[in-house]
Structures are given as C-alpha cells and as structure tokens.
Design a protein around this nucleic acid. Structure first.
Lengths: 193, 193
DNA sequence: GAATTTCTGGTACGGTCGTGCAGGAATCGG
DNA sequence: CCGATTCCTGCACGACCGTACCAGAAATTC
C-alpha cells in the first residue's frame, strides 16, 4: 500500500501525478482507477495495489495539489515582500489563491472545477478534514498577505472577505457569459481599494 | 412525450413528483430512471416514455420545485405585507428563500444539496438557462421583500448581499460542526440590522 | 365498431464502474 | 543456483447505469 521499494515509491507518485492532472481536467469524478492507470502508463491493478481505495487516491491527489499551491502562494508572498505593492497586485494574488492561477486565462472551467470540489467535499468523509486543513492554511496565508501589504484584517473581516469572493464567484458561474475572475476582481477592488 | 390523455398527464406528473422527492433527498445524482419509476410505483419504461431523456426529467423536477418555492415565498411576502416586520422576520424570510425552508431544522443536508445543485448547474446545459431564470425571479422577489420592509437596495447591493450569504454558506459547510443557516443569519443581521 | 393513436411494462444491450483474486514476475537471502 | 518472499498485474465478477425495443392493452377518433 505505502510502497516499500524506491521503484514502488516512484510508481505511487506517478499515480498521484496522473490523478492530479485528471482532477484539474475533469474534477473529482474524473479520477477513476482506469483513467489514472492509463494516464500514468501503468496497469489498472496498480491503482488498487498502491491505494487501498479510490478515495485514498483522490485524497492523495487533492492533498498534493493543495500543498503545492499554497507553497507557491507563500513563495509569491516572500518574493514580493519588500517591493512596494499596488492594490492591484495584491488583488491578483488573492485571486490566484482563491480562484486558482488557472483562472487567469483558462476561462471558466478551472474555476468551476475548483468550486465543484469545494462544495463536493462535505459529502466525502475522506476529503472533509483535508479540505478543512488546506482551507485553514490558505486563510493564514491570506491573512499574512493582507497584513504585509498594509491592509490588516481581523479574523471576522477576513472570513467576510473570503465569503464575498466565493459568493461572487458562485453567482457569476451561473450567468450566461460567465467571467468569475473579473466579477471577483471587481468585488475585491471595491472592498480593498 | 408530452402526454395526451388525462391519465398520461397524471402519470407524467407522478414521475415529476417522484423526481422532486429524490432531488430533495439525494440531489441531482439521485434522480435515476429506476429510482424515479420505483418511487412513483410505475414501470421503468414509463420514464423514457414521458421524458425523452433523463435530463428532461431532471429539468422538469428542478423547474417544478423552483417555481413552487418562489410562489411560496411570494405568498409569504403578501401575507406579511402590511404587518410591521422586525429585522429578524425579514432575515428569516431571506434565509428561507436563499437556503430553503428545510434548512430551518433539517440540519446541514438540505443546504448542502441546494448548493450542490447550484454549483452543478453550469455543467449541465439543460439546467443552466433554467437556473438563470429561477435565480432571476428569486432576485426580483428578494428585492421586493427588502424594499417593502423599509430596507431598499439597489441592484449592486442586492448582488453583494446574495454573494455574501452564498459565500458564508459555502464556507460554513466545510467547517467541522457545520451550521450554515446560523452563519448566514449572523452575516445578514450584521448587514441589515 | 373498426382503425388509429396512446400508452404499458417486461426485457435486454452495451457501457462504466470499484474491487477481489489467482498466479506470474521480480527480488532477496543463503 | 535455488527456494522463499515480496511485488505486481491480467482478468473477471457483480452492480448500476441510460436507453432501445416490441408485443400487446387501452383509450380515442372516425
């Protein structure tokens, strides 16, 4: 299950990477044993060999992707820590973290996938605690970003800001010519600018 | 397909009712040919006879339920039109309309189902326009409620208020001891009170 | 009352899915 | 070199799924 040999480790990781790719393309539902195995160029049974269940595999993929993303966001923060930041820069960073960097030009799809995953989490017991943890880390990061950019917020204000963005996105997604990132950008600028 | 005889009409309607019940219990995914037929006490093939596809059936169920709900909300508005309304009354009415009346005591589940449906709509071409229409009517109703309750809002403020509630709910759903209605209530009271 | 349309419901087809399992392949200790 | 242990995988099973089909019953129309 947990891979004992280096080769096993590599294969296990290849499966996770494949699952991450599928996750980004088609959401939670796209992560299937057969699809992951095909994508990784490994036999079907390897998926059940390295992961006790499909849930395990999905959770590993979500965790891997979430941690990578948060690490990237933290790097962005450190990188820009000492430069002077315009409100626009901060807003874009927040948008990258809340909607995903793929929302910059990838159209509506990546944002939709992201919020499908968010709303789909409570129903999956194996995902719920993980999502809580990742969300917590994300909040810490957002808090730090705002503080270091001269717009400190308390806990309640941060929660409200996040809620405002999430709500704006969800509502923008069901419009006819959806552009959730632009909608969220307007909301954030009005609030922070 | 559209039922020509009175009996056909009745059966068709029975299928829609069954679909609505399944929708309320298990969401969009729970509306299956076999489940609907069983629930309605009708043979499997009746579902494909009265509805060209499963999408048709789901759309009919969503529309039926949405219109019923909006009509109920409008009735509530008319009923309370002339009484004096406390902010609390208005907030509860808004919560009923945005989260569903089932959120009053049904726990987290009905709210989760509602937002799963909302986020799941963009991906289903047959649902997207319908949801847009229902959302539009809901907004009109909310606007009227606020106006008649002495808290008029313009279009932008209303959108922001809705976004705030939706975002609060989505974020409350992934918490450990979720109580989305209470969270949304706090948000609304802070905003309206 | 015959013809035509509307409806009924049993059945089956082709597909995807998660997962269990027997046995083949690779590795390791001696 | 060989037996034992671990690692790996082809295959198939059973469960659902949407939907098509068709013989016949029932209702409606002429």
């Amino acid at each position: 299950m947990t891979a004992a040999t280096p080769k096993g480790e590599r294969r296990r990781h290849a499966l996770v990477e494949a699952a991450v790719a599928l996750l980004a393309e088609g959401g939670l539902e796209a992560v299937r044993h057969r699809a992951v195995a095909d994508r990784a160029g490994l036999p079907l049974a390897s998926t059940t060999y390295y992961f006790t269940s499909l849930d395990d595999l999905v959770a590993a993929a979500v965790e891997h992707e979430g941690r990578t993303e948060i690490a990237a966001g933290r790097a962005r923060l450190d990188e820009l820590a000492d430069e002077r930041r315009t409100v626009e820069d901060v807003v874009e960073l927040l948008l990258d973290l809340l909607l995903g960097v793929d929302s910059r030009d990838g159209g509506t799809e990546p944002v939709l996938l992201r919020y499908e995953r968010l709303v789909g989490s409570p129903r999956r017991p194996y995902l719920a605690p993980l999502m809580r943890e990742l969300t917590g880390e994300l909040k810490d990061l957002l808090d730090e970003i705002l503080a270091r950019s001269g717009m400190p917020v308390d806990r309640e204000q941060l929660d409200e800001l996040i809620a405002l963005v999430d709500g704006t996105v969800v509502n923008a997604l069901i419009e006819s010519g959806p552009d959730p990132r632009s909608a969220a950008r307007r909301t954030l600028r009005r609030r922070l600018g």
